[in-house]
């Protein structure tokens, strides 16, 4: 018998599932926010017509893909290999993704901590990060969103926050 053992790496089904569900939810929320929030809509309007970006985990996923198709922003599922992706936001591991997506670590901090690798044209990547920040403010209660973004937008009107939140949640759940 050899003194060196070979050990196949284990699986992490629970963390993968959480991250997968969260990515699915965020994807649909971005699709919804593009309809409900003027700022998100404007960011997407400035991007090219077939613009596509992905967010997910290295080395083996899960992923989510968002794209502009015929002028509308669509959640395109979880398989980036089927699309030409302009911007790829890759988190270094499922565990790091879990930290970020369970709000133990904000996106800005995760970038600062080298957990998030951004690939693609810089102006596009910045637009994607701005969109993610706005969506996080809608989806999360202030106390958590305040951790997730650099500067919580105090100047938003109560109407924008509340109306946007209801609209985005409803559309996300219904998938419209």
């Amino acid at each position: 018998m050899s003194i060196v053992k070979d050990i196949p790496s284990a699986k992490k089904p629970l963390k993968r599932a959480y991250v997968g569900i969260f990515l699915w939810f965020t994807g649909r929320a971005i699709q919804a926010a593009a309809k409900v929030d003027k700022e998100v809509k404007k960011e997407f309007d400035n991007l090219p017509d077939d613009f596509t970006f992905s967010l997910g985990c290295l080395p083996n996923g899960p992923w989510m893909v968002i794209g502009k198709r015929n002028g509308a922003v669509k959640y395109l599922g979880g398989n980036p290999s089927q699309h030409k992706v302009h911007v790829r936001l890759a988190i270094k591991s499922v565990d790091a993704a879990f930290l970020i997506l369970s709000f133990q670590e904000s996106t800005a901090l995760a970038t600062a901590r080298n957990r998030l690798i951004t690939d693609g044209e810089v102006p596009y990547a910045l637009a994607v990060i701005r969109i993610l920040d706005i969506v996080e403010v809608y989806l999360l209660p202030k106390i958590i969103a305040g951790l997730a973004v650099k500067r919580y937008p105090k100047q938003w009107s109560a109407g924008r926050k509340l109306g946007g939140r209801i609209g985005i949640y409803a559309r996300t759940i219904l998938g419209i």
């Binding site: 810089v122 102006p123 910045l126 973004v149 650099k150 500067r151």
Partner: peptide, 13 residues
């Protein structure tokens, strides 16, 4: 400046 990557690492938005 909105299209320049250095903004990501600035402490304030």
């Amino acid at each position: 400046a909105l299209s320049d990557g250095a903004s990501i690492y600035n402490p304030e938005d």
